[in-house]
């Protein structure tokens, strides 16, 4: 019987911290900015709408206070999303895909390639213009273990897509 059972030194295992995570494309910042701005203008529009709908004195007198409050929240949110952009990083190893994101709640997700069910590359209208695409990686798990890496260079995404597809097919 050819069976060995070597002891595993946990410190010798491939370490997730040694992986150099790549930042996503800088152009994606534009998409984030545009999306955010569109969102904020919607909200501000809604606030103005309220001004015409609610005729109560209490609201009318304090309208500018409310307005400024909303703007401050929007600005804070915008700054956070810009800062969080730097946290969006990814890496592909021989056996898994890693994606890190989030400023307030930072998370690093790793999905082993052998567990991937299918890969999808999707491109919105805006992303096509900037030469970007989103790589969606689906596992059999509940939504918790699915990955969606946004803002990859189109070629890069295609390359990863091909690599994973080849690996997944090779396994079966």
């Amino acid at each position: 019987m050819n069976f060995t059972n070597p002891q595993i030194q946990t410190e010798d295992l491939p370490n997730i911290e040694d992986v150099v995570l790549k930042p996503i494309s800088k152009s994606y910042l534009k998409i984030i900015t545009l999306n955010r701005l569109a969102f904020y203008s919607l909200i501000l529009g809604a606030v103005f709408g309220l001004k015409y709908l609610i005729k109560e004195d209490g609201f009318q007198d304090n309208f500018w206070l409310v307005f400024i409050g909303v703007i401050v929240i929007c600005i804070a949110n915008f700054i956070i999303s810009i800062l969080a952009f730097k946290k969006r990083k990814y890496a592909v190893r021989g056996y898994d895909v890693i994606y890190a994101k989030g400023l307030i709640i930072h998370s690093i997700i790793t999905v082993p390639i052998s567990r991937i069910q299918h890969v999808e590359e999707s491109r919105s209208w805006l992303a096509r213009h900037l030469g970007l695409s989103t790589l969606k990686i689906f596992t059999a798990g509940e939504a918790g273990s699915d990955l969606s890496i946004k803002g990859l260079q189109h070629l890069e995404a295609k390359g990863i897509n091909d690599f994973i597809s080849a690996k997944v097919n090779g396994n079966n």
């Binding site: 997730i16 709640i105 997700i109 567990r115 059999a140 798990g141």
Partner: peptide, 14 residues
């Protein structure tokens, strides 16, 4: 049978 692993850390836990 694991499908994926995730490490989560909030800014306060850092």
């Amino acid at each position: 049978k694991i499908q994926g692993v995730k490490l989560k850390q909030t800014i306060f836990q850092k």
